[in-house]
Design a protein around this nucleic acid. Sequence first.
DNA 1: CTGTTAGCGCATTCAT
DNA 2: ATGAATGCGCTAACAG
Lengths: 338, 338
Amino acid sequence: MPNKKITIEDIAQQANVSISTVSRVLRKTSGVAADKRKAVLQAVSDLDYRPNVFAQSLASGQSMTIGVVTHNFGSPFYDGILRGILQGLEGSEYSPLFADGRWDKTIEQNALQAFLDRRVDGLIFVGGQLSEAEMVEVARKTPLISVARIIDALAEQCIHIDNYQAAYEMTRYLLDMGHRNIAHITAKMHYQETVSDVWQRYAGYEQALQDAGIAVDPALVVEGNLMQQSGAMAVEMLLMGKRPFSAIFSANDQMAFGARLALYRRGIRVPDDISLTGFDDEMTAAFTLPPLTTVRQPSVEMGEAAATAVLDLINGDTVAEQLFKCQIIVRESVSRLR
Amino acid sequence: MPNKKITIEDIAQQANVSISTVSRVLRKTSGVAADKRKAVLQAVSDLDYRPNVFAQSLASGQSMTIGVVTHNFGSPFYDGILRGILQGLEGSEYSPLFADGRWDKTIEQNALQAFLDRRVDGLIFVGGQLSEAEMVEVARKTPLISVARIIDALAEQCIHIDNYQAAYEMTRYLLDMGHRNIAHITAKMHYQETVSDVWQRYAGYEQALQDAGIAVDPALVVEGNLMQQSGAMAVEMLLMGKRPFSAIFSANDQMAFGARLALYRRGIRVPDDISLTGFDDEMTAAFTLPPLTTVRQPSVEMGEAAATAVLDLINGDTVAEQLFKCQIIVRESVSRLR
DNA sequence: CTGTTAGCGCATTCAT
DNA sequence: ATGAATGCGCTAACAG
């Protein structure tokens, strides 16, 4: 039977030293005679001692934890972020605490409060529903890093991808494949906090077309709301307009799936009749026929960067905004024209 | 600016009472004069006081937390469980702590240790890699509930579905649709702890056939390892055998997706040529054509039951094993025969 | 280097 | 009902 209520005092006795010496070797704050250190370590393992984190935190004022807040655990993207954070924290003395906001602001706020009550030494937000002002307020009191969401007032503390470039490259890819009439499914500005991302994606699309000497045809740009259903609607709208197009670039995978479904129902084949691309690579684990050409966010790397960054912040170091480059995942949903 | 370092003492002063009185109204352990109580509450909100959880835990010996350990956050099933747990804990004084074992036993053990160090008052395991013996050992020291995994020695503390019945019903459904030659993709006994579930699913399949006067054809039962890839292999094996079959019942969705893929590659249509069903309803959010007829585990209800159960356990009450009934989700992956 | 001591913030007897 | 006093287990000055 492991530890019952073994305290630092027990091992001090067992090792014939004072409790401060024990604390010293455990916290490795200052030198301790080799023999005493050995005796302490021996006692620790003999008695299977486990320090009381509450007492530690109470006395030191530090909890040695960092809180991770997200929209919801159940997504591949978050899963990657999570792995990255775990990796990034490895070796450090800090351990992560997780909370799932469930896309509900109230729940998220409660979770945040719980973290604050637990005196987390740092915070990592992956997305999040809090307003910029609230984030800034929180950041004033606790080291905080925002992943996959840009907070202008906290730019240096943000880790995200270069949406513009990724969209540019995706459009460029479509152009290279011979497509000239490329539709784009975007989203209205007010639907999500991710709005700025979506806007940048549109900008990348536009610029790529312009650089290819093609003007954006407003009739080929339709707005959804980021959800799958709206992707299907978007296709219907595109079809109703008489403008011909050979490819669709959706600002996110969700809508792309909706589009895929709508096309399927119409008997329009992908990619034989229409090429289709998305953004986020949300369905890597899913079963899609054919899988979508899309943009993959380096979630693991971003998570790791986030962990490293909070650690730096806690450590008093300055951090800088980090822009990650995405990878275009080419799959059979795009065909070469001509 | 909210609380800085406001302690119980500050509000004691502000309310002209002793700290013990403050503690009393906050912990509502014993009666306090109405006026004093009001004064205290007023001071608490005025100063935006937040109790120090570490001091609380250190003094009381309780952390008022329950730890939730899972394989990995990123699955719809876990997502449901999570929601259920959140619901079930609502109103109680306990708040959850989450850990993701990432399908790695070492990581899981570390997470468990972290929970133990944090003196969680209860534990909920959703799956998990620990051996039965280890689980029993942990359960000896901490109230523990196992979700979706049967631990014989801890039967009363388990919450799971009736795999046998669900499989029976699914097979029955296939039979009702006119199918007579129904293949089954199962898994070898040693691949996972979920093995007993898989076995029960096979048993349900077998019994349903027998009750319909059909003997199980060993040639139509193939073993995978629960992963998608093995589902594809299974189909290849079935195809190689000369036995005809019109439907496949896979013991889990993962393998069913693999099977779906293999069939597609072979140009065999689902459900026109072969009907296909799975188990777990893992891809509700995914894009599948057609979506699979499968078995849905009532994850939310199970999560809620788990939360309630740990609370009971902590409270010293006895708990009983809980078997949940599943729902068969009918989708267009099954066709009617004849 | 090492032992002694004073808190950390709060729950809890113990008196009153 | 309520205030004073202890102690939870540990860290961090503070003296040697």
